[in-house]
Each structure stands twice: as structure tokens, then as C-alpha cells.
């Protein structure tokens, strides 16, 4: 096995383990930690795929900012262990098989479609190229996201403000 394949399997195991643990853990903080593990593993996979910039952004924005926000809110609300309520029968007997079926089907179709696609082996993506693309071809969506963020900030401030 090549080093790359070993790394892939280690990272994939980390990601899947984290996702399973997200479901099994009963405390939201533990679930959040599991999700962080998934995100770090995905960042490693992006590095394997040569997407250096995306890997760094994944950790900085996802793991370093969004998940911190989650952890912050969990700490702020002092959320306790998840209540073990009666899971609706639908979810248990239909949802689980359906989720499993969805996974298998997705994996089958996606992998089948791309199986013949030989990976283009090239070095890491130069960040310069990505920047050129972002600010030339995708400059309009880029500007739109800035408006989106502004609106999100306003929305968060208005929503979280205490009524006096």
C-alpha cells in the first residue's frame, strides 16, 4: 500500500468514527467534539486531494469558528445530557433502514459514475489560481456572499438581543 492510501484509510476511519460518535454521544459537547474530529479528518483528505487552501479554510472557518460558536452556545445554555424521549416508531423502523438505504444508493451511483474517471494526478492546487478564479469568474457570487454575511450578522444581533 502506498503512503497515500494508508493516509486515506486512516483519515476515512477518523471521519466515519467521528460521525458515528456524533450520533451515539448523549451530551451535545461530546457530539460537537466528534464533529470537530470529522472536520479535521476532512481537512486532511482535502490535503490528500491537493486542495491546500480549502483544507486550511476548512479548519479555520469550520473547526475554528463555527464549531467554537456551537461549543460556546452549548456552554452558555449549560445544555445537559440529551433527554431520552420516546423516539417515534417511524424514525426507528423506517428512518434507520431508509438512512442506510440512502447511503448505499448514493455510494453506488456516485462511485459507479466516477469509477471510470481516472484521477488527474497533479501537484497541489496553487492558491493563486483559486484566487484568480474567485475574483474574476465568480466575483458576483463572491460579492453576494458578503451581503449574505452582513444580513446574517444583523439577523443574529436582532434575534439574540434581550428584550428590555
Amino acid at each position: 500500500m502506498s503512503l497515500e492510501l494508508v493516509l486515506f484509510f486512516v483519515l476515512a476511519a477518523m471521519a466515519i468514527g467521528g460521525a458515528v460518535s456524533l450520533i451515539l454521544q448523549r451530551h451535545p459537547i461530546h457530539s460537537a467534539l466528534s464533529l470537530i474530529v470529522v472536520m479535521v479528518a476532512l481537512a486532511g483528505l482535502y490535503l490528500l486531494l491537493g486542495a491546500e487552501f480549502i483544507a486550511a479554510v476548512q479548519i479555520i472557518v469550520y473547526a475554528g469558528a463555527i464549531m467554537v460558536l456551537f461549543v460556546f452556545v452549548i456552554m452558555l445554555l449549560n445544555a445537559g445530557v440529551e433527554a431520552r424521549t420516546n423516539v417515534s416508531r417511524m424514525a426507528r423502523y423506517v428512518g434507520l433502514p431508509l438512512g442506510f438505504f440512502l447511503t448505499v444508493e448514493l455510494a453506488y451511483w456516485i462511485a459507479g459514475g466516477a469509477g471510470r474517471q481516472a484521477p488527474v494526478s497533479a501537484g497541489p492546487t496553487p492558491t493563486r489560481e483559486l484566487a484568480r478564479m474567485l475574483f474574476r469568474e465568480f466575483v458576483f457570487p463572491f460579492e453576494l456572499t458578503s451581503i449574505l454575511i452582513l444580513i446574517a450578522i444583523l439577523g443574529a444581533v436582532v434575534l439574540a438581543k434581550k428584550e428590555t
Binding site: 476515512a12 471521519a15 466515519i16 460521525a19 458515528v20 456524533l22 450520533i23 470529522v38 483528505l45 428512518g95 434507520l96 438512512g99 442506510f100 440512502l102 447511503t103 448505499v104 448514493l106 455510494a107 456516485i110 462511485a111 466516477a114
Partner: peptide, 14 residues
């Protein structure tokens, strides 16, 4: 792609 599908499925289950 298979890994991604598995993760998505786990997300749905969660």
C-alpha cells in the same frame, strides 16, 4: 465519493 456518501448518510441518520 463513497466516503462522502457514508458521511452524508450518517448525517441524515443523526
Amino acid at each position: 465519493l463513497v466516503l462522502s456518501a457514508i458521511l452524508f448518510g450518517l448525517g441524515v441518520v443523526a
